[in-house]
């Protein structure tokens, strides 16, 4: 049944009939839960495999990122009901958010560039922070295991 609310004498708006039926809500819940379980499975996979930095690790991280975007889509579209709003309203929300594409690429690239520069021109930074092959670092030369003392 369509309801019409009189908010002010001039402006009226229609409600979509039977919006957000309960079945759709629960279906969205199961979708969100399923995606989260898959994300967790990939998280455990990354933990269990302990992959070195490289394409496979990046592929798994990329997969969970895409799955998160899917979750965001379901929350915004179904739970927040944006998918059923007037197209112009959707556009005033979604188009400004496109800024994020530039925002993410520019700043992540900037961080990466800073790292590259420091590794090239600051040997101390490179030596003191670069992990070795197994993600571990040898103890400083002057330190011997026997000297380890607890905090007083």
């Amino acid at each position: 049944m369509s309801m019409e609310h009189q908010m002010s004498p001039e402006v009226t708006f229609h409600h979509a009939p039977d919006e957000g039926n309960v079945k759709k809500i629960w279906r969205t819940f199961w979708v969100l839960l399923a995606i989260t379980v898959v994300e967790l499975a990939i998280g455990y996979l990354m933990y269990a495999l302990d992959l070195p930095d490289g394409f496979r690790k990046l592929a798994l991280k990329g997969t969970v990122t895409i799955l998160s975007l899917a979750k965001a889509y379901y929350i915004v579209s179904i739970f927040m009901h944006l998918g059923s709003e007037v197209r112009n309203l959707i556009m005033t929300i979604v188009v400004p958010l496109m800024l994020f594409i530039w925002f993410i690429i520019a700043f992540v690239y900037d961080g990466h560039s800073y790292k590259t520069l420091r590794n090239n021109y600051d040997p101390h930074f490179k030596e003191s922070t670069m992990p070795t092959e197994h993600g571990t670092k040898p103890a400083p030369a002057e330190f011997k295991a026997g000297e380890a003392g607890g905090k007083e």
Binding site: G43, M46, Y47, F103, I104, F107, V108, Y109, D110, G111, H112, Y114, K115, R118, N119, F125, K126, T129, M130, P131, G135
Partner: peptide, 17 residues
């Protein structure tokens, strides 16, 4: 994104696991 930027500027970052 600021967090991402700093993280990409480091050679080492803790494993959340």
């Amino acid at each position: 994104i600021s967090y991402g930027s700093i993280r990409f500027s480091q050679n080492y970052w803790p494993n959340p696991n």
